[in-house]
Write a protein that binds this DNA or RNA. Sequence first.
DNA 1: TAAGCAGGTGTCTCAAATGTCATGTTAGCC
DNA 2: GGCTAACATGACATTTGAGACACCTGCTTA
Lengths: 196, 196
Amino acid sequence: MKTLTTGDIAKMCDVNLRTVIRWIERGDLKGFKLPGRGNNRVQLEDFLQFLHQHGMPIPPELSGEDNFRILIIDDEAAVARSIGRVLRSAGYETAIANDGFQGGSLLMKQQPALVTLDLRMPGISGYDVLKFIRTTPETAATKVIVISALDHSSLQRALDEGADAVLSKPFDNQQLTELVKELLPLPADPRSSPTE
Amino acid sequence: MKTLTTGDIAKMCDVNLRTVIRWIERGDLKGFKLPGRGNNRVQLEDFLQFLHQHGMPIPPELSGEDNFRILIIDDEAAVARSIGRVLRSAGYETAIANDGFQGGSLLMKQQPALVTLDLRMPGISGYDVLKFIRTTPETAATKVIVISALDHSSLQRALDEGADAVLSKPFDNQQLTELVKELLPLPADPRSSPTE
DNA sequence: TAAGCAGGTGTCTCAAATGTCATGTTAGCC
DNA sequence: GGCTAACATGACATTTGAGACACCTGCTTA
């Protein structure tokens, strides 16, 4: 059972600690007191409900749990849209980057949980991108599926450099969907129901 | 998660607090309410979006008072290092991106105050980058110096598309330094001492 | 041209919510 | 066991939301 202190909440809501205590005193936010001097604790679940009830945004620190955003990096707009369509219908959020620059900025801005990466894009080596993702702390844990029409040894190299999976073009939609579901299981998916 | 109060926004837009509240009520500006009496808060990102949508200038307070980071986007590593050296010795922090992907991610990650941009990079049009920077709320206020060996009309087009300045290759270091100091005056710099 | 209208903004006032500060205590950590 | 950072609390300062009303601008209409 994860609990939060008043300080945690104050930081997350960008509000004074005093105010958080008043919310709890007033009953707006459900919490309980520790025996000692009565330090407050709030259960994560209660806090999330509180945020939802008041239409407040969910702080990025807490949104990691339900991050199902996928970034599609592919210079061929048609291919990218096609992938996007398939993944959206499977229940994921998608964003498309048609060049390396957009790819890099959307990666940092949206912090997607998974990236599909075309190995061969004009001016940029997919391997470099892979290496960059893996060596940047913010994105080191991001799942990467490399998609390419290149030969087997190229795909093997991608795996060696840190790709979580590869998919050789052309691929069919079911292959893609299954691969993504394996790497990033949706909550409704039976595989992802952690009991406890 | 940085948030703004109605008062903050009122000051920045030089507008009455009452008016800001009306913007939020009317739905022009996205915001949310605190539990107490419903005090309004606006997420920084939403505010930037609002400013951009209405073609309003970005208040200087938001462009970062003590942000003197410069991102150098150039695929020629030697050129990039050279620029970096010059700017560091002038007192700026620098980061280098050698391709579009690094450029995009460092731009979002570090939120530099100024970017030097090579117009011709393999696989990516500098104009696209410029457009992307200008239309993304988080970076719309970032200063951009376009550096290129292309002809006059290309540079003019860059200015038309939102570059703050252009520099034609080859350039000498003093030119560059002066240009940067003009766009991003350092605190010690006499030009930047606003006498209240 | 002048009068009338409508929507947006500024002003004023008051009560309620939030921020700030100082102080003493405790919980967490070596 | 001792130390430091975090926390609760009270008192006080400041900000904020709401209602009512005035003003200003642009437009329509007589």
